[in-house]
Design a protein around this nucleic acid. Sequence first.
DNA 1: TGAATGTATGAGTAGGTATTCATATGAATA
DNA 2: TATTCATATGAATACCTACTCATACATTCA
Lengths: 125, 125
Amino acid sequence: MNKRASGEIGGDDVCKTVCVHRSAVDAVKECMVGDGTLRELAELFKVLSDHTRIRILHALLHAELCVCDLVDVLDMNQSAVSHQLRVLRTAKVVKYRKEGRNVFYSLDDDHIFSLLRDGMDHVRE
Amino acid sequence: MNKRASGEIGGDDVCKTVCVHRSAVDAVKECMVGDGTLRELAELFKVLSDHTRIRILHALLHAELCVCDLVDVLDMNQSAVSHQLRVLRTAKVVKYRKEGRNVFYSLDDDHIFSLLRDGMDHVRE
DNA sequence: TGAATGTATGAGTAGGTATTCATATGAATA
DNA sequence: TATTCATATGAATACCTACTCATACATTCA
C-alpha cells in the first residue's frame, strides 16, 4: 500500500504522510486545472450561496424586474436588496439596464439558468 | 407606471413602495417555489463555495481517493481536509466507503458533475 | 430650481465559517 | 494486548459577510 518509494526529490516533507496511493494521486494532479480557475469557480458558487441572492435569481428566472419590484417580491428593505444586487452585478451573474429612474435587472447568461436547474435537480433528490 | 391601484386588501404596508410593476410582480410570485427549496438550494451552493472543497471535488472528478491522498493532492493538513470532507458528506455531495483503515471518497451523483461543468463554463466566459 | 422618487453605498455590527491544535476513535499489525 | 496508522472531531480564533441605518446620487416632475 505504501508507494512512497518514488521521488519528490527529497523534500523535507518526506514521510510526512505514508499512506498515499502514489499513482492515483499523480494522475489526479495531472488533471487538476489551474488554481486560479478553481478559485473563481468557488467564488461563483459563493455568489449563489446566499438565500436572498438565490431568491433574487429565482425571481429573475421568470421576468426582468426593477429594484422596487424585487423589494416587493422578497419583502425586504431596499438597501438589503441593492447590496445583494451589487454582488450579483459584480459577479456578472445579472445584467441591468436603466430606464428613467428605474433599473431593471435580468439574468446574464444561460449558464446561470443551467446552474440553477441542476442545483434544483440535486436538491429535489 | 404606477399600477398600485389594485388590491392587496388594504394591508398596513400600502404605499410603503409605490413603484411596483404589479402585474409582473404578481406573476413572478406565482412562479416562486417554496422558500424551503430555495433555502436548500442556497445551502447546496454554499457547500460548493469554498476553495478547499472545490479542489476536493475537482480531484474526485477524476478518481476515487482516500483522505491521505487528498491531503497530498491539496497539500493541506489532515484535519482541515477531514473537516471539509465532513461538510461535503453531510450535504450528500460526496459518498464514501471504508476499506481497512482508509476511507475512500467519491462524488455522490451526476448533478454534481453537471454543476461543476456548468460552473466552469461560466467562469471561462 | 426644488421636491420627490428610485437606487446605490459606506460604516457598524452580529452571526457564520475555515483553519489550526490537541485529542479521540477505530482498524491493522506486531 | 500494545502500538501504530488513518481518520474524525471539539475548541479556539481570525476572518468574512449579510443586514440595518443613514445618507448620497441621479432622474423626473412641478
